[in-house]
């Protein structure tokens, strides 16, 4: 549990650095609720889409309200109080006059055509220390802090971690409500996450 708490803390700290670092000084006393709002962004918005989509928006309060309302209508799990907190946070950070610098990413492979699960030789060796942060960013929203389970199954101690073919096939191509990650994560990222999960 202590590890899980640390993972959440590291993850929130990372996002806070990213979100707050660009926005300049933050009024004191708001940091606690900001951290909670950032957690909501990761856990509730991040279920369906990566958070870069949010960070590139520049909307005023009524339009953030409308956007969050639409997402709740579509199934985002937010209580009224959480929704208010989120709108407050988003309108304060990603408002029309916020900095024009938006973090973006690049990919090297625009057209991955892997139709078959990777052979053993093509699976990179995972680095467990790298996996925790990758998991927090990409998987935690569904699989819970410390991979303890949530919307998606508990992965800590899950036998699929050792069923190589099933693990890779599921992560790369998805299964049921699990999205396919072949375009969202590199092979190395997946190997790192797998290595970290095996340490739990």
């Amino acid at each position: 549990m202590r590890l899980a708490t640390r993972v959440v803390a590291v993850c929130l700290l990372g996002l806070a650095t990213l979100l707050l670092g660009r926005a300049g000084a933050v009024p004191e006393g708001r940091i606690g609720s900001d951290a909670r709002a950032e957690g909501l962004v990761l856990a509730r918005c991040g279920t369906c889409h990566s958070t870069d989509l949010i960070m590139q928006q520049r909307l005023d309060r009524p339009r953030w309200q409308a956007t969050v309302g639409k997402m709740i209508h579509w199934g985002a799990e937010l209580s009224d109080e959480e929704a208010d907190l989120l709108v407050e946070f988003l309108a304060a950070r990603f408002h029309p006059t916020a900095s024009g610098l938006v973090p973006l990413s690049e990919i090297g492979e625009a057209e991955p055509l892997q139709a078959e699960p990777l052979s053993m030789q093509e699976r990179p060796n995972g680095v467990a220390q790298q996996g925790a942060a990758l998991f927090a960013t990409n998987c935690q929203a569904c699989h819970g802090a410390g991979a303890g389970g949530g919307f998606g199954p508990k992965l800590a101690g899950n036998p699929i971690l050792h069923a190589e073919a099933s693990f890779w096939e599921t992560v790369l191509y998805g299964r049921g409500s699990m999205p396919a990650w072949e375009h969202g994560l590199s092979r190395q990222d997946i190997a790192d996450i797998q290595a970290w999960l095996k340490t739990l």
């Binding site: 990372g14 996002l15 650095t17 990213l18 670092g21 990761l42 990566s50 958070t51 870069d52 024009g100 610098l101 973090p103 973006l104 990413s105 690049e106 990919i107 090297g108 942060a133 990758l134 960013t137 990409n138 969202g184 994560l185 590199s186 190395q188 990222d189």
Partner: peptide, 29 residues
């Protein structure tokens, strides 16, 4: 991962754009 960190010019400004290693990770991290 390293080679995915490139510099691109956008709207006349130079930006460092990061790989999709971890979308919510800061450049510093």
């Amino acid at each position: 991962r390293l080679v995915e960190v490139v510099v691109m010019s956008s709207s006349g400004e130079s930006l460092v754009r990061e790989a999709s290693v971890a979308p919510a990770m800061s450049r510093r991290t």
